[in-house]
């Protein structure tokens, strides 16, 4: 796989996937990361709803960009960004999609690496943006992770 493999997919998006935010899923996530914050469990926040932790949106299904060839091995997570427009609450129904916005190649001491930058968005029932993620995946042809 080379830069040319991915370039035709820049600008392409997945079809939005409906994600229901479940209270139990938030609690299990908070348990897994070892965060005892009651906001993630009892909904003791200002409006009594259970809130999701800041990285919870990474658990959503953002769909697949049609025909984009993603290698099964050799992909590493290089960078992650979140931009928050409002908190995510249990009970939210969010429509999530992913778009490949950039690909580029860098040569380093470990050989050539291809950077794939995805923009993932979650939009609520009213069409308002809730969270925007930017995820950089790095693909190294040789496989393995140094």
């Amino acid at each position: 796989m080379s830069l040319e493999t991915f370039e035709p997919f820049v600008g392409r998006s997945s079809s939005p996937v409906r994600n229901e935010v479940e209270k139990g899923a938030i609690r299990k996530f908070a348990d897994a990361i070892g965060d005892p914050n009651p906001l993630y469990r009892d909904g003791t926040g200002a409006d009594g709803r259970v809130v999701a932790p800041p990285t919870f949106s990474r658990t959503f299904d953002y769909g697949k960009i049609p025909d984009l060839p993603l290698p099964k091995a050799g992909l590493i997570h290089g960078e992650q960004q979140f931009e928050y427009f409002r908190p995510i609450y249990a009970g939210d129904v969010l429509y999530c999609s992913s778009k490949l916005i950039e690909v580029h190649e860098k040569s380093g001491r470990l050989g050539s690496m291809i950077f794939l930058v995805f923009e993932n968005t979650a939009v609520d029932d009213s069409g308002d943006l809730v969270v925007r993620e930017r995820l950089t995946a790095i693909y190294r042809e040789q496989g393995g992770v140094a």
């Binding site: 990361i33 809130v51 990285t55």
Partner: peptide, 23 residues
């Protein structure tokens, strides 16, 4: 990253206070 997020929400206290977070 979630651990760092915990540190941030411990510091901010209020849901919705965090606006951007990248690593």
């Amino acid at each position: 990253m979630a651990f760092v997020g915990q540190m941030l929400t411990d510091a901010t206290g209020t849901p919705g206070a965090l606006k951007q977070f990248r690593v």
